[in-house]
Write a protein that binds this DNA or RNA. Structure first.
Length: 162
DNA sequence: CCCTGATTCGC
DNA sequence: GCGAATCAGG
């Protein structure tokens, strides 16, 4: 891809769907792909891939819990808020360790365990689509290194209009 | 206060 | 069709 700047190419959309189905938030998807969260959400809406459609429906759809123990994408969202707040407020309580990212531990979706980092390693083509597979703490979807990447404080860079 | 997602609207 | 701006809720 020489000079052209393709907005949403097939690969991009593929990643979008993958991450969306993986249970990742729009913010995480945006951070991974490299676009704004609005862009991701807008594309999803255009693709009719929204999770709950309207507000009312979404509101009612919530409140559903599964106790069968089926691995359903594992949403560890409440954890993120704590990390983000800690980063914003400057609290030194955040357990941010090192940022060592091992590529030798990457594995497929089936090899993913509860203590495995599920950072999506997707390449243009999605042939060897796999995950980081590094050691991740309980409740955390990613390892220390990828956690920082996913939650980089970039949302605060708002433009002043007026 | 912050975040999230979804729609609306201008380009 | 794209994304920012805006809306709506937690």
């Amino acid at each position: 891809m020489p000079v052209l700047s393709p907005t949403w190419t097939n690969e991009r959309i593929e990643l979008l769907k993958q991450h969306f189905e993986a249970g990742l938030s729009c913010r995480e998807i945006a951070a991974d792909i490299g676009v704004s969260r609005n862009a991701v959400i807008g594309k999803l809406s255009r693709l009719n891939l929204t999770r709950g459609r309207s507000l009312d429906e979404r509101r009612l759809q919530d409140r559903n819990q599964d106790r069968t123990g089926a691995p359903r994408a594992q949403r560890a969202v409440p954890r993120l808020q704590f990390e983000m707040l800690a980063t914003i407020y400057g609290e030194a309580d955040a357990p941010v360790a090192t940022g060592s990212i091992d590529e030798a531990n990457r594995c497929s979706l089936m090899e993913l365990g509860e203590n495995r980092c599920r950072w999506p390693i997707s390449t243009p083509g999605a042939e060897d689509f796999c995950f980081c597979g590094n050691v991740a703490h309980d409740g955390q979807p990613y390892c220390a290194g990828h956690s920082r990447l996913a939650y980089k404080p970039n949302s605060r860079a708002r433009v002043m209009r007026g």
